[in-house]
Design a protein around this nucleic acid. Sequence first.
DNA 1: AGGTGCTTCCATCAAGCGTTGGAGACTTTG
DNA 2: CAAAGTCTCCAACGCTTGATGGAAGCACCT
Lengths: 201, 201
Amino acid sequence: MKGRILRDARKIFGEYGFHGTTTRMIAQKVGIDISTLYYHWGEKGDLYEAVVQDIFEDLRSKLVEVEKLIHGKPLSDRLKIALDIMTDYLFDNPEISNLTLFRYFAKTRSESVLEVKVPETMGNIAYSMGLVKDRKSVPVDAKIKMLALMNSIHNFISGESFFKILLDVDHEDYVKMVKETLAFIMVPAFGQGMKDIKTSE
Amino acid sequence: MKGRILRDARKIFGEYGFHGTTTRMIAQKVGIDISTLYYHWGEKGDLYEAVVQDIFEDLRSKLVEVEKLIHGKPLSDRLKIALDIMTDYLFDNPEISNLTLFRYFAKTRSESVLEVKVPETMGNIAYSMGLVKDRKSVPVDAKIKMLALMNSIHNFISGESFFKILLDVDHEDYVKMVKETLAFIMVPAFGQGMKDIKTSE
DNA sequence: AGGTGCTTCCATCAAGCGTTGGAGACTTTG
DNA sequence: CAAAGTCTCCAACGCTTGATGGAAGCACCT
């Protein structure tokens, strides 16, 4: 039950954000009384924290999976494959993108432990992309590039409902266009700008 | 007074989003009673619509200004200048980025007339970037590229408070890094991928 | 059968929300 | 000077919110 609540809370929080979500909405989605929800998770903020923690872990383990998959391949292949897999994964779990962006852009009320772990993750992505040689000491300019990369994907996932109407395409075409656009932008940038580092491998 | 309310409402809505903002917060910021606010603007949703409309017009007129400035210049210069000016402008008016992203990513409750005007704007950007030759008939793949471009900027503006801590830099360095990163990613992409169109000018 | 611990629901609370009515104050008009 | 109009605030409304206390159900052990 505790897990079921967490799973449904993810979706609701992801759609409406922290303020836009009410505990009653979550309880209704699960099909239980609100007091049952409070029994298992305590206050709303605690549940939210747990949800954020949860999606963060999911995202991180997915990134590890991708890293193993692309290891050893040439740079532009690595990037294309990673983009492809991550895009598919996030389209299947849009709450991850939604909540990540919510966390970035909406006013934070209480600083959590999570914020320390995000840079670490960005460093890991930079490493598996071959942008840096040492996982431990990642320069800020590499981190901010990975941030831009990740956010571009998140944007397209979270904005789907809006952008789909705007571009007047269906889901299938939208997914295809997103992948093409991401490749169009990212491959030249990271392919070219990184050649100096690449040759030293 | 009506204008003063609009100006302050922009900031509050931009920081906390629609649900995160209360009419009392806005009134307090302006320094008036809530009923005065209601006297001038009616219900919260109407004020919010007005705010969104307002920032949209601001953004559009700024884009027109940029278009005039870069007209006739070679492509990579156009892009660099446009990025530079828009980044500075949005750092000065972060509510524009905040509200734009909020509108894209948070659940919409009532479809507005605005949504029809956004694709038109994206088409105009694509035109002034030299991506398309005809302002009237802009293909979807050009629009989605402009969307990606604009969103990348918005992301860095809206996420500043979060990313600044994450990267452990101050405002000045952050702005510098953002500009470098945007140029790093966008210039190769649009410089290379667009050469075929460029030559036909 | 009775007790114990865990889980669920009903009823309810105080606080905060969006919103409104009405009474004053100040300016403009006759 | 009075009347009309414009603006502002105080007080309050009904409703939704996050949150809780207590009773009922259920499985398990003795």
